[in-house]
Amino acid sequence: MFGFSAIHVIGIVAGLALLYQSYRLVAARKEGIFEFLLWAGFGVGLLVISIGSALETVDLLAALEGGLSALGFARGTDSIFFVSNLLLLFVVFYTYVQLVESRRQLSDLTQELALLRYDLEQRTDDED
């Protein structure tokens, strides 16, 4: 029924790790719902592909190839690479946007901290 090889085990472990870590972070309120769904989705996808391709009774890759050939992909593996790259591009873009926003917020905080110190010094000088 199962034809596990090392690559299947790696995929399953990675999928479970993603699920566990994303759940742990959202439970601790260290990430938002959107981030949880994103990473948990990757985890579920990894599990489905790893387990599905290891099932001898269900030829997942063949099913994928059949379904995706209707979209114009020549081979199932091509489509997997294509979709994977699209997802990675999405993740990189999302991370970049978050990084830019974090840098802007850091600049704002730096500025406000400096201005607060300045205000305090000015008030102290006025009182003196």
């Binding site: 600049s107 730096t110 500025q111 901290l113 400096a114 201005l115 110190r117 300045y118 010094e121 000015q122």
Partner: peptide
Amino acid sequence: DGVVSHPRNMGVGGAVHT
């Protein structure tokens, strides 16, 4: 009359905006 001191370097654009 006053000094605003940035805790980290922000570049001249950040300095003038402050």
